[in-house]
Every structure is written in structure tokens, then in C-alpha cells.
Amino acid sequence: MTGLNEKELARQAMNGDIAAFEELITAEKPRLYSFALGMAGGNHADAADVLQEAFVKAFVNIKRFRGDSSFGTWLWRIVRNEFINYRKALGTKALQHDDEEVAGLAETGRTTAVDELIFAERRAKLLEIVAMLPPKYREALVMIDIREETYEKTAELLDLSMSALKTRLMRAREKLSELIRKRRSYFL
């Protein structure tokens, strides 16, 4: 870190300074990638693709950053929009679940190693199920229930009022509950 403030770095990035832009995104990158992973159903390739696309868009459009909010907040907004576009581009990708495979794993779980394998598999499946939620519900669930971000910070980053966030989260849990009901055998 050079210690230059956000405003100065943003000014340099506006003049095409790539290193300044890289420094600007450094602080938020781990959190954004965590969010991207949650949004992409744990798929690292998809998460990295979307995040990269969002960063490129942020760089190209950095002149639109007016400094009304922090650069981090502005960046989060771009990443969230990119997930909406990304899902649209893909179509509503139906995630494939091999019910028999998971059910089989559950039945054969006897040893600790196998238990761990089952647990890892279940986590992966759960992430896939989370990825089936519409983006606006998914992001609320990823932020609060998965990443355990505070309500205040989440409301700020998702640009929502507190009550709107709580409503979205409730709807997200209901939708998740419906999805789980249909696939309850995975988790028993």
C-alpha cells in the first residue's frame, strides 16, 4: 500500500493508472470474492469470471464514481449488477442434482472420513441450492446467513433499507425452505 487516500487513487485510476485501480480494489477484493463464491454456488471459476468482469467494468466506468459513497460501496453495486447480468446471460441455469448419488452417500456414511466426505458434498449441494434462488434473495442470504455480515453493513452494501432487507431475507429463507423440502433427503 502506498498510503494514498481513496480519492487520490480514484483520480489516478480515472487517468488510466491500472496500479492505482488495483490498489483501490485490494481492500474489498477478499470480501467481494467471498460474496461472489456464495452467489455462484461455490463455483470458483464462475465467481472469478463474474468478479473479473465487474472489476473491468468498474475500471472502464470509474469516471462515473463521484465519491458520494465509498469506493467499496460503489464496487459492491457493480459486482451485484454483474451477477444479475451474468445469470441473465446464462439463462436460468438449472443446477443438476444427482439425487441418487447424494442419497447413496448418506446411506453409506459410517466412518469419520466418509462423514467428512458426505459433509463436504452436502455443503457443495447446499451452495448449489442457494445458487438457485433469484439474485435479490440470494444476495441477502449470502450476506447475512452465510457470510454472517451485519444487517447494517448488508443494508448499506445492498443499498436497501433495514426493513426491505429483513423482508428479502425472510423471502429468501422461505424459498430456500421450499427448495430444501423437495431435497430433504440430501440433508438427513
Binding site: 477484493k29 477478499p30 470480501r31 470474492y33 467471498s34 463464491l37 456464495g38 461455490g42 472469478a48 468478479l51 452436502r122 455443503r123 447446499l126 451452495l127 442457494v130 442470504l141 449470502v142 446467513d145 452465510i146 457470510r147 454472517e148 455480515e149 430456500l176 430444501i180 440433508f187 438427513l188
Partner: peptide, 16 residues
Amino acid sequence: AVTGMLKGLVPAEADT
């Protein structure tokens, strides 16, 4: 079971 699993399903910060 899912509620327990959701927490930390992805780390709050992750390396690219």
C-alpha cells in the same frame, strides 16, 4: 441441518 451448514458455507473473506 442446513441452518448449521449455512454459517461459514463460504468464508467471510476469500482469496481469489
